[in-house]
Nucleic acid binder design. Structure first.
Lengths: 248, 248
DNA sequence: ACAAGTACACTGGTCTGACCAGTAGCCTGC
DNA sequence: GCAGGCTACTGGTCAGACCAGTGTACTTGT
């Protein structure tokens, strides 16, 4: 017989627990309102600071939102990937996670997203991709910022077609962190126009593979493109981490 | 010229921002201590309730931990996947992320981890895997709980060999969430011994592929095993989401 | 009758001050 | 040298207060 160590349970944790339970059980649906802090304080039988700390925790988890002056009370929010985004972002910026690991992870996610997109795409999806590619083409002549935004939009369409929110969020986060790490180096790139043309050509190729429902081909193109574009920023000693992904 | 809507910035948010910045920039390393609440209150020039709400937010993000009575003050924690786990768990229990998406994501992660492991494994890694497999073999006769723990250990070794913390953490989190979702169904499985034997055989097969440095083979085996074991719990209509991943 | 404007009751955000139980380290007494 | 108590702190909680802001209901002007 072993005994478990007991942790003291704070009052605000009990409050969080009860409210969270009400939300995940569906007793409180998104859009509904919590009682005001002063009302909660009498219902739970604790002081207002305790209630407020509990609400802060729930607010940090994107479960509720409170606005000063609103007599209807704090609002229950729908589940959103924002909290996932934040915690993954924090983890990715921590130590032991360098550009090599991020790029490796992104190759995995991007490759899989392209594979799924090629297999699952509908006709509507294809027209959406056509439109995204078209605005990239326009973006070439309208400056790097515009082009970059169109590029992001293209990737988002791909991720959406794969119909997996986890994939979408993870890829978005990793892409953001990668760009943060190398944006200063990208700034100095002199031949940005030719880079944009190369990117455009690559996306056209990917779109062809997706249209042909060639999942393996699309995945390989995506991973190869990431490698070609970013591997130069990875320390040479770590590049062997990336090459195995290019084979499949 | 467009103007952005401005959101009122709360005092506690500024406090969170500054402390978080100090942590991610490395000015405050894990194990170090923050000043006491009363000291922070004078440094930031705000009241204690504001400081406490900020600390609650940071604590909910697993960045700090405070114990009453400790004169050294709140402790800065190392980056941990706990927050990621919580937010992914919450998202998984919400709509739009069901078992199908989780399993799909896990097939991607697990497959990639096995691929990388097969390509990057050293001799030491192989002996580690042999040991893990051996304790699984022992676990068969020592009950499901023991076997399950050895199974988890095996997966952790695989993930570690792939040398990518993001992959390790993501896989761990997704595996945990998947198990939570179906653990009640697994409880009732009558033929657990034969299930364990099948799992064991599969792991031996995977280990052979890794030993042979056959990345594609190991990845395919891993994904196929996940599909074989868990697809029955996925609604039939969503199973086509999983099959494309088995082809590569 | 209706629109515009105003008053009010209430919201969340913040501060102050207080009390409590508990801890870590010092400091005594042996 | 060491066991035991002492003390100055810690975080957890509560109570009460003030403020700027909001939504609503009511009043007012037309």
């Amino acid at each position: 017989m072993r005994f478990e160590p007991v942790a003291p349970v704070r009052a605000y944790e009990r409050v969080v627990e009860q409210i969270e339970q009400a939300v995940v059980s569906g007793a409180l649906k998104p859009g509904e309102r919590l009682p005001s802090e002063r009302e909660l304080m009498t219902q739970f039988g604790v002081g207002r600071s305790t209630i407020r700390e509990a609400l802060r925790v729930l607010q940090a988890a994107e479960m509720i939102r409170s606005r000063p002056g609103d007599p209807r009370g704090p609002e229950v929010l729908a589940a959103s990937p924002a909290a996932l985004h934040r915690s993954m972002h924090r983890l990715a910026r921590a130590d032991h996670v360098g550009l090599a690991e991020l790029l490796q992870f992104r190759m995995i996610l991007d490759g899989s997203a392209h594979l799924l997109a090629a297999e699952l795409r509908t006709e509507d999806d294809l027209t959406g991709l056509d439109a995204a590619l078209e605005s990239m083409r326009e973006g070439v002549s309208r400056g790097y910022a515009e082009f970059s935004r169109a590029d992001v939009a293209f990737h988002e369409v791909i991720a959406r077609i794969s119909r997996n929110p986890l994939l979408v969020v993870s890829e978005e986060v990793v892409r953001g962190v990668v760009l943060e790490l190398i944006e200063d180096k990208l700034e100095h790139a002199s031949n940005r126009t030719s880079l944009m043309r190369a990117w455009l050509a690559h996306h056209a190729e990917v779109l062809d593979a997706i249209r042909a429902a060639d999942g393996g081909g699309a995945a390989h193109l995506a991973k190869q493109a990431l490698y070609d574009n970013y591997a130069e920023y990875v320390p040479a000693g770590q590049r062997p981490l990336l090459t195995p992904l290019l084979q499949s």
